[in-house]
Simulated assay, not measured.
Amino acid sequence: MADTDTSGTVVCLAPTFESYGMVMDFMAESDVFGNFELNAIAGVIRTQLRDGHNLAGIQDNNVVGYAGWLHTTVETGSEWMEGRAILKPLYDDSIDAAALTIFATSDPKMTPRLIRGARELNKGKRVFFKRGYDGVVRPGRKNTVLNVGGTF
Rank of each mutant, 00 (worst) to 15 (best):
D3F: 14
G8Q: 06
G8H: 10
T9E: 12
V10C: 04
L13D: 01
P15Q: 04
P15A: 14
E18F: 01
M22I: 05
M24T: 07
D25Q: 11
D25C: 06
E29L: 13
S30R: 08
D31P: 09
G34N: 06
N35K: 12
F36K: 07
E37T: 10
E37M: 09
L38K: 11
L38F: 07
L38A: 08
N39G: 03
A40E: 11
A40R: 10
G43Q: 06
R46M: 09
T47C: 11
Q48H: 12
Q48R: 10
L49M: 11
L49I: 03
L49Q: 03
D51C: 08
H53Q: 14
N54P: 09
A56D: 05
G57F: 03
Q59G: 03
D60Q: 14
D60T: 09
N62M: 14
V64R: 06
Y66R: 05
Y66Q: 04
A67G: 11
A67R: 05
G68F: 01
W69R: 05
L70D: 03
L70Q: 14
H71C: 05
H71F: 14
T73Y: 02
T73K: 05
T73D: 00
T73R: 06
T76H: 04
G77S: 01
S78N: 10
G83Y: 02
R84N: 13
R84Q: 13
A85G: 04
L87G: 08
L87Q: 15
K88R: 15
L90E: 11
L90Y: 09
L90R: 15
D93H: 12
S94E: 11
A98H: 03
A99I: 00
A99H: 03
L100W: 07
K109A: 14
K109F: 03
T111Q: 09
P112I: 01
R113N: 09
I115A: 12
I115E: 01
R116D: 03
A118L: 13
E120I: 00
N122A: 00
K123T: 09
V127F: 02
F129A: 10
R131I: 13
R131D: 01
R131F: 10
G132A: 12
Y133S: 12
G135D: 05
R138M: 11
G140V: 06
G140Y: 08
R141H: 15
K142E: 15
K142M: 15
N143K: 05
V145G: 00
L146G: 00
L146I: 06
N147C: 15
N147S: 14
V148M: 10
G149F: 06
G150I: 04
G150S: 10
G150H: 08
T151G: 05
